[in-house]
Amino acid sequence: MKPVVGIIACNRTVGVENAHAVMERYVSAATVYGDCHALLIPPIGGLAAARALSARLDGLMLTGSPSNVQPGLYGDAETGEGPFDPGRDAVSLALIETMTTAGKPVFGVCRGFQEINVVLGGTLRRDLGYGQNGFIAHHAPDSTSFDQQFDHVHEVALTPGGVLAAACGKDRLIVNSVHYQGVDKLGEGLNVEARAQDGLIEAFSANIGGAQLLGVQWHPEWKPEQNPDSQVFFRLLGAALRGQDIGAQHAKL
């Protein structure tokens, strides 16, 4: 039987009602290239719900989102800029903890990458969109259309001997860049997998008590059929869901 990955949903307003939503591109990329089944996780419930869910899942994937992680969750007293999604914050952070404790894989994309960092004691910075403070612009101009936002790209250098370098068989990738926030202080136990040319951490990995973690700041779920390097992220997910070691000793995927 195929393994089952839980994919976190976000709170969205549909008409006048609240809805729990996941963009189809995440589900499609995970199930096609990870060769797995998916269950969508509603962003409601606390730690008890997270414990119950973690027992029923083979792994967890945390998606990107228009919302930002609340600054107070990583010790920042400033309010920051929304939108925020407290329900998602509560469920995602609890699930990362319970899945890691259970030794099950956790993969993150964009916001999900940031959530993993926060759970492991890391912090975020919020000044990355417009090319300031020594950083390149990590987001297209606000006037850019939705599709064109994903045409905003830059290069990342992969860590020699890292999981991504080994799986992609490359030392550099061109990745899309659609984020205003990113890693400031790296969370405990995380290994850098990729950096942008301005030094910003763009990917990390870890093996914590047997739980395999992999996160990327970019969006591999965006048109992966056109990008074999993006497919690698989800192939690694599929391998981890099956209990395979995704460490750098494995051959190119």
Results as ranks from 00 to 15, higher is better:
F107D: 04
W222T: 05
P105L: 00
G72E: 13
H179K: 00
R125N: 09
A167N: 00
I208W: 06
R195N: 06
L95C: 07
M61I: 13
D58F: 08
A140E: 02
G238L: 07
E81S: 14
L237Q: 02
Q249N: 15
L39Q: 12
F84H: 07
H154Q: 02
H219R: 09
G72R: 14
V106R: 07
P66G: 05
L213K: 08
S54L: 09
P66N: 05
I44D: 07
H37P: 12
E202F: 06
E78K: 15
F204N: 02
W222V: 11
P224T: 02
I8A: 12
P86G: 02
V5R: 10
V14C: 11
L60M: 11
R242V: 03
A196S: 11
A38T: 10
N227S: 14
I41W: 08
T63I: 08
Y74S: 03
P71R: 05
A239P: 04
V175P: 01
P224M: 00
I246H: 07
S92N: 11
E193V: 07
E97V: 12
G75S: 06
C168I: 09
G75C: 04
L237D: 07
L190P: 03
P224N: 01
F146H: 13
C10Q: 15
Y180K: 14
T100N: 09
A166L: 12
S92V: 15
G112L: 01
A140Y: 02
R88S: 01
Q197V: 13
H154W: 04
A21T: 12
S205K: 02
Q249P: 12
G72V: 10
H179D: 01
E193C: 07
S143H: 14
N176H: 05
M61W: 11
R88A: 09
A19Q: 11
Q197I: 13
A90T: 11
L253Q: 13
P160I: 04
A9I: 09
T13L: 12
V118A: 00
A52N: 13
G134Y: 07
T63V: 12
T98F: 06
F146M: 15
V232A: 00
V178Q: 04
P43V: 09
G247H: 07
F107P: 00
H138C: 04
T100K: 10
V106W: 11
L186A: 01
P160F: 03
S205N: 04
V32Y: 15
G215Y: 05
H138L: 01
E81D: 12
F107K: 05
G45E: 04
L241K: 08
V91T: 10
N11I: 15
G82W: 08
Q149F: 10
P105F: 02
V32W: 14
S177L: 00
E221P: 05
D229N: 13
T101K: 14
L124K: 00
G64L: 02
L200H: 05
L200G: 02
V106D: 00
A240I: 03
H139C: 12
H179Q: 03
P83W: 11
T123E: 00
L57E: 05
A196Q: 00
Q148S: 14
S65A: 14
E188A: 12
N191T: 13
F113K: 03
V22A: 06
D198F: 03
K170R: 15
T98R: 10
